[in-house]
């Protein structure tokens, strides 16, 4: 069934997806809020940047991240000079890559949900004495709850499913940066189809269950726009 390396990969995958989703919700919420409401004329450029991971081969993103985070790269080099280690081939590096890679899956549903609320409920709240922050937490957030659910599940599921970026930047170190999708690849390469079946089947069912939950809880669910 599952060997120790598989279990370690499972643990790392879950940890990575959880951390990534939390970071994306934390950073993505104010960003999506701003994107949904700003009338800045160059907003479309930012929207294109956010959507890039949807169309880029993950290896492209992974390659640039590897360059940037490695010891010779600007970020990795800075880390080294600050007495740390380069981020390539570390769990932190994986988190950075995953945050970028899964960003559209969190930002877009949030932005869509905020935009669909419209200006009116917030104006009503303002005339009922609610300050801007108060309005966000008591009106916008509850009205956008389906967006938050969608964002969280898609962000998590998509991070679990990534392959190219983590392979490039994580380096497939068992127990440190080896995630499930890469573990499956390794098993197949070594013709261990039984292991590959267990892991693949598990991921398939888990992904299906997550998406089904979203669709069931939220009939108005709209899938990510490319």
């Amino acid at each position: 069934m599952l060997n120790d390396a598989d279990l370690a990969a499972l643990a790392i995958t879950l940890k990575l997806a959880t951390v990534t989703t939390l970071i994306l919700l934390l950073l993505g919420t104010p960003f999506a809020w701003w994107m949904a409401r700003t009338r800045w004329r160059y907003k479309f450029m930012l929207e294109a940047v956010v959507a890039l991971p949807l169309v880029l081969p993950p290896t492209v993103l992974g390659f640039y991240l590897l360059v940037a985070l490695g010891p010779e790269g600007p970020v990795g080099g800075l880390m080294e000079r600050l007495g740390g280690e380069p981020l390539a081939f570390t769990f932190t590096g994986l988190v950075i890559g995953s945050v970028l890679y899964s960003m559209p899956f969190v930002v877009q549903p949030l932005q869509g949900a905020f935009a669909s609320i419209g200006q009116r409920p917030l104006e009503v709240a303002a005339t009922l004495r609610a300050s801007p922050l108060d309005r966000f937490f008591t009106v916008a957030a509850p009205l956008a709850r389906s967006g938050f659910l969608t964002a969280a599940v898609l962000g998590f599921a998509h991070t679990v499913g990534e392959f190219g970026v983590v392979l490039m930047i994580g380096g497939n170190i068992p127990g440190q940066t080896q995630v499930l999708s890469i573990a499956i690849y390794d098993h197949v390469e070594m013709l261990e189809y039984g292991h590959a079946h267990w892991l693949s089947g598990g991921l398939l069912i888990a992904s299906f269950l997550m998406l089904m939950t979203v669709y069931a809880l939220n009939r108005r669910f709209s899938l990510v726009r490319p």
């Binding site: 709240a125 303002a126 005339t127 004495r129 309005r135 008591t138």
Partner: peptide
Amino acid sequence: PPHKRPLGYVFQEASLFAHLNVRRNLEYG
């Protein structure tokens, strides 16, 4: 700012908060 003006505003459409019942709508303000 609007939230510091002691006014009441009735919009053309009722614009009740969809996530609150009538009582909680009234209590909000």
